[in-house]
Design a protein around this nucleic acid. Structure first.
Length: 287
DNA sequence: AGCTACTCCTGGTAGC
DNA sequence: TGCTACCAGGAGTAGC
């Protein structure tokens, strides 16, 4: 699924085709993609030029201007299955095209989204669409000391905490599982029980995993995520635990286990990621 | 604060 | 072969 590395890849590969282009027309065959009103969406974007394309968390932001002055933006979230492509209008759109923006070079920026969860919204400012977002995990704002401090302040299980975009922005199911494995931390460990050494290991694991995945242009393991060029990413070849239930751990050979944590499929090596020790206080048996 | 359950969707697949 | 039932999953929301 598109997480930070995939969205970063889309931003990088799509930018040359859209930055500098003016939006001439809009077609939105599935209204919810643009927030319900294609007319209002069209009014906000037609006649605007794209001046920049960047990523924050799992959001893509297209900066817009009109007559040389900044004039709002498009904020897109790919969710499960969204993809952007720039194509000739004559190219087959397929059954899942939810939005098409005609550009001034005659081509179309298309948003294709099988599961219809993705959104492309027009806004005055990106912050109007972003929820509460924690630090970017690859920025200086995400320092090991800060992570340790934030972990100390929380009692939640690590897995749902790391999936929480307000704690750290951009991680999803895949990269959380991979990072926890790399750090040797079980997903059910309570945040405030992570040692300083483990917090540093987790910080390094998150950054290392994300950087490696960006370098490989993300992960593609089903028909969903593709780069704007239509190519799959390659990081799935390096998964250590994600989607490897029943297969041997690459470190110790123990069978990878799949469990469910917070309604999310979760993959661990039971040996490399020992479960947290039972209750903090032994349960007193009634007599 | 933070948990669970539910919602939105549909292609793929397990089971019969 | 063909049918049904269920599953995945990011994020928002409701209820506790």
């Amino acid at each position: 699924m598109p997480e930070l590395p995939e969205v970063e890849t889309v931003a990088r590969l799509l930018a040359p085709d859209v930055v500098g282009r003016e939006i001439r027309a809009v077609r939105a065959p599935w209204k919810p993609t643009v927030g319900g009103s294609p007319a209002a969406f069209g009014k906000a974007v037609v006649g605007r030029r794209v001046t920049g394309l960047w990523r924050r968390a799992k959001y893509l932001v297209f900066d817009l201007e009109r007559a040389g002055a900044a004039d709002g933006c498009l904020v897109a979230h790919l969710r499960m299955s969204g993809r952007f492509h720039v194509e000739e209008p004559s190219a087959d759109c397929g059954p899942w095209c939810r939005l098409a923006l005609t550009l001034d070079d005659g081509r179309e920026l298309r948003f294709v989204d099988v599961r219809k969860f993705g959104r492309v919204l027009a806004a005055r400012r990106p912050e109007d669409v972003f929820g509460v977002l924690g630090p970017e995990p690859l920025s200086d704002a995400f320092a090991p000391e800060l992570l340790l401090e934030e972990l100390r302040a929380k009692r939640r299980h690590l897995k749902p905490l790391l999936l929480d975009q307000s704690f750290v922005a951009g991680l999803g199911n895949i990269y959380v599982d991979e990072s926890l494995f790399q750090a040797g931390l079980h997903p059910l460990v309570h945040a405030n029980r992570v040692s300083a050494a483990k917090a540093h290991a987790l910080h390094a694991a998150i950054q290392g995993t994300l950087r490696a995945a960006i370098e490989r242009e993300g992960s593609s393991f089903d028909t969903f995520y593709r780069t704007p060029n239509g190519q799959p990413g390659a990081y799935q070849e390096q998964f250590l635990v994600y989607g490897r239930g029943g297969e041997p751990c690459r470190r110790c050979g123990t069978k990878i286990r799949r469990l469910v944590v917070g309604q999310r499929g979760t993959h661990i090596c039971p040996r490399c990621q020992p479960p947290p020790r039972g209750p903090a206080r032994p349960v007193l048996r009634a007599r």
